Amino acid sequence: MQLGNEEIYKVPRAKNELVLRALSNSARYNILQQLSQGPMNISELARAINISQPTVTTYVNQLEKAGLIFCRLQKSSKGYNKICHTTYRGVSLFWETDSAETIEDEYNIDLPVGHYSSIDCVAPSFLATQAGIIASSEDFSRFFHPIRMQAELLLMTEGNVHYLFPYNIPDTHKILYLEVSAEICVALDRADCCADVSLTINNHRFAVHRMTTAVNKKSSNHLLEWYPKDLATTGQLYVWRVEADRSTLNDIPAGNMTLADLNLQPMQPIEISFEVKSPGKPPGGMIIFGKSFGQYNQDIRLTVVHEREAHRDEDRTR
């Protein structure tokens, strides 16, 4: 329960490790100290502790996951700002656990952009590694060559791409939420371009999101000789989440999908599909960045947070 910064957080034993890990880093601790003075957004925190905004975003996510802070999106003239708040004045940790206590686990799978099960796109579209383009719409058969597994960037002007994520959480566990995250952006780095992007999970679709071209930071991609000069080099980290009673995109309501709709079954893969349409002229298209591109060190990530019952004897034998 979020009580502002007026109470002591009695950390559930299941989160002891998360909290200790969060507090073990001086930069994350500095973020907590800054927020103890009042709410701040990501750019304000980055300036205050003199580290990059992507790093602050990563640290904020870790602190939020540990229950030490909470964040809200606030509309601004340039879109939305993530405003961070401290949750409590301090923490209190205990080693013993009650036999009925539950343990919260996190299941993560990352798939590189080239590990799709099927793809259908129109020209111009391509797959790339740091060394250069390895498949393009000039020879569509290359999109199914084994070399595609090495790709870490996918550009689609229009089309869809499907991924199968392994899933093996027992049905006796309670699923708290499921997330899909990826760094994406409008491909053409022009102010008059846009793209309509939608994500589908097990044949259930989120609301369509219109991406517009933002002023992007230049990454090392623009130093690559082969990289087209008119393409964006960084994107935004988009996080689609499905909970028991709602679905969101970056904390904004994004449709009526619920966990029950997904019909998650142990040992059955979860199908994730991206679709892009480019309504304007010139067509904006979409880029999905992998680890070697953009500004976030991740591929397409599936996260499932689930809860299981902890038993005293089990905890003592760990």
Rank of each mutant, 00 (worst) to 15 (best):
A260Q: 11
E183Q: 11
E275I: 02
V180I: 15
R241P: 07
P54E: 08
S136H: 01
D196F: 08
L35M: 10
E243C: 12
N81H: 10
L20A: 05
F274D: 09
H204M: 05
T86F: 00
C194H: 06
E314T: 15
A310M: 13
F289S: 04
T157V: 03
A195G: 05
D110G: 05
S24N: 11
N16Q: 07
M156W: 03
L176V: 12
K75L: 10
D261A: 13
L264T: 09
C71F: 06
Q74G: 01
D189N: 14
K291P: 00
Y163E: 06
E243S: 14
N25F: 08
N160Q: 15
F165A: 11
L231W: 05
Q53V: 12
L3Q: 12
K10E: 00
T200M: 11
G280V: 10
R308Y: 15
L262K: 12
H173M: 06
P253D: 15
Y296C: 06
P283G: 15
N5K: 09
A191H: 07
A254D: 14
N108E: 06
M267A: 12
S125Q: 05
T317F: 01
Q37S: 10
I169L: 07
H85K: 02
S118D: 15
G255Q: 13
E6F: 04
S273Y: 00
Q265T: 15
K78H: 09
F293H: 11
N216M: 03
L176I: 14
S198E: 14
L154S: 04
F165S: 08
L188C: 02
G284V: 06
D245F: 03
R47E: 04
E314D: 14
P146A: 02
E309A: 07
G294D: 02
P269C: 10
L73I: 09
Y107V: 13
E104N: 12
V56I: 15
V304L: 10
K218S: 05
A260G: 10
K65F: 12
E7N: 12
L188D: 07
R190C: 06
Y88K: 09
H209T: 15
C121G: 02
Q265F: 07
F70G: 03
S219K: 09
F143H: 04
V60Y: 02
H204G: 09
Y107E: 07
N297T: 08
L127C: 06
C121F: 03
D171N: 13
V91Y: 02
E309W: 00
T212G: 11
V56G: 03
P269G: 13
A214F: 04
C185Y: 02
F126I: 06
F274R: 03
Q34P: 00
G38I: 03
P39W: 08
Y116S: 05
Q298R: 14
L178V: 15
F293Y: 12
T258W: 04
L264E: 10
R142M: 07
E314Y: 10
I184R: 02
E17V: 12
G4A: 07
E138Y: 02
H162P: 00
Q265C: 14
P170R: 05
I103S: 11
L18M: 13
L237W: 04
A191F: 11
Y107Q: 05
L259S: 09
I42P: 04
A207T: 15
